[in-house]
Nucleic acid binder design. Structure first.
Lengths: 327, 327
DNA sequence: CCCACCTCTACAAACGATTGCAAAGTGTTT
DNA sequence: AAACACTTTGCAATCGTTTGTAGAGGTGGG
């Protein structure tokens, strides 16, 4: 269909190899020839075939990204960041969604592995050893997950929790509840651990079961939170926090009058709800960008060795769901 | 790195071509040989290189999907549906996000075109003639957009609007407002037209400017709606409707007591807001699936010719933001 | 004036698979 | 026993590019 390099060669009166060099390594070719080739390529609308190029170079200039659930408003931010950075580096991105299914995650990863130069896994649900096995087959970067010493981009969960507790503590809260997310989530463990450390010796922490990281999970947790007699609650993520607030409101429990609520992630809806949600913001786009940076560094043979992990800051955003501890 | 077909051939004591046939067209090969090849491939962990295969077959088994904005909760549903269907057909999906920028959309489309068998454009912002030009270079499927007679998957906007007006009319509303979305959006024009037709002769329709299809767009429209003295309002999409409800509530205007609100799309947040949003649901996952079906049919050389357009139903979901027309 | 050297270009061999064609081997028919 | 058909397999070309190597042509120095 499209013009090939041979068509351009014929049109320019040179050999295909000269065309290739003129277009890619023009300093090795006579400027006049380069110009002639350029013009021929232009007039034929020649676009190099990335498949053929990939076959010989072994590089596809594609990156893969696997996320648990695109419908979770947290992930589109990561995807956008990754796409933007990839585009700058002239890479394209395959995106796959696993529906939170580890089996599917594994299969998708292996399938994608052959078509991309590096695979970026965001919040993978796979076990550590499976991730390490995967890393043997393909250049791998982890986002929001640590496994062995695989390259990873992480958020400062501990720092974020510290800020949240500091904020609540300053408002007079002495009993804080934690609505935990899924056990299989590494971020959840991190946040729980960070929260414990931040509370230690200052405020009493009541940990409330594990709930689904969804709006309904938050709804389900709401009454349990109320029964626990805390004056503030921190949820594993914003979606759950929104569920909590919604149910509190339905129960006639004032937020933040009677109870304060803090979420995590800072999804777009957090700022739009009423009252707007106080939350620990995790840099989403930046995570995606950093993932590409790491992947590119790993791919670069002349690179200054691997930068195994990169930690991004987390930032408490005080909005409308936190206030002074009630009577 | 990975084993090639030659490695398998050597291990099985046959030629590469036999390996290829044994794996792909096993009925042409002696069953015993097939078994031997299978075993060899298995033990070497052989995975055919899709790049090499793509070079000779001219098929990549990849599909491209371009959406205006992944952060808009409408699109992840489409992406998920498309991925699921593509996975069933053993295709992978490239996803790109244009940030609502037509220029970027055009560039991404052309770049992706070489790497995929077909390109699916969801709610493209490009002009008709550009879309037609693109279709000359790559198999193209449009979602929620008609251009020339390019293959397309559409929603029954007119039907949805008819249901919405019927519902509001039954509740006693005689003056309905319309908060329109971006002029460049084809869906917007469709919905406006559908609404006009549905209202004709029954209820008075007040069309209110064009607003950004965002939460803030809805917020900005709220006071204008109130000034227009309608008893119900239909927004271009749910995100805007949510902005409207939010601002109405902030102004102390009861929803649905004083004014009823209807959205479009049925994004996940629509059901989670309070009160939950009455909306015209558009099948999102099904749109994605239908897009793949259309693309596959187009790609199939033995196919029964092109099915140029497919229309999906729209369904009014009555929830909490609509009620009887106030005093 | 010749040789060495440098610049530029062409040839050909990859990359890893698929596939048309021919050859080898087996069984059947005349 | 020869000819034929059919099954099974291997050879070699091919897809469109990149890249190592060699050769052609030109320039400058000895």
């Amino acid at each position: 269909m499209g013009a090939t390099i041979r068509d351009v060669a014929r049109a320019a009166g040179v050999s295909p190899s000269t065309v290739s060099r003129a277009l890619a390594m023009s300093e090795l070719v006579n400027p006049a020839t380069v110009e002639r080739v350029r013009r021929a390529a232009e007039s034929l609308g020649y676009q190099p075939n990335p498949v053929a190029r990939g076959l010989i170079t072994g590089r596809t200039r594609n990156l893969g990204l696997i996320v648990p659930d695109l419908a979770n408003p947290f992930f589109p931010g990561v995807v956008k960041g990754m796409q933007a950075r990839a585009r700058e580096a002239d890479y394209a991105v395959f995106v796959a969604d696993t529906d939170e299914d580890p089996g599917l995650e594994s299969r998708l990863a292996r399938k994608l592995a052959k078509q991309v130069d590096a695979l970026v896994l965001c919040s993978p649900r796979l076990a550590d050893d499976e991730l390490l096995a995967l890393a043997a087959d393909v250049t791998l970067v982890l986002l929001h997950r640590r496994a062995g010493d695989l390259p990873a981009v992480l958020a400062d969960n501990a720092g974020g929790m510290r800020q949240a507790v500091g904020h609540l503590s300053a408002l007079g809260h002495r009993r804080i509840g934690l609505v935990a997310g899924p056990v299989s989530s590494w971020s959840n463990s991190e946040r729980v651990a960070g929260l414990r450390a931040a509370c230690a010796g200052r405020v009493e922490l009541t940990e409330l079961g594990n709930f689904a990281p969804t709006f309904d999970g938050g709804v389900a947790a709401a009454d349990i939170v109320l029964a626990s007699e805390v004056t503030a609650v921190i949820a594993y993520n914003d979606v759950m926090a929104l569920g909590l607030v919604n149910m509190f409101t339905a129960r006639g429990v004032g937020v933040p009058g009677r109870i304060s609520v803090v979420g995590c992630d800072d999804i777009p809806q957090a700022a739009m709800s009423s009252p707007p949600l106080t939350t620990v913001a995790v840099p989403k786009e930046q995570t995606g960008r950093a993932g590409v940076d790491l992947a590119l560094a790993l791919l670069d043979p002349a690179g200054p060795g691997p930068a195994p992990a990169r930690e991004l800051g987390a930032q408490l955003l005080v909005r409308g769901t936190t206030g002074p501890a009630g009577r």
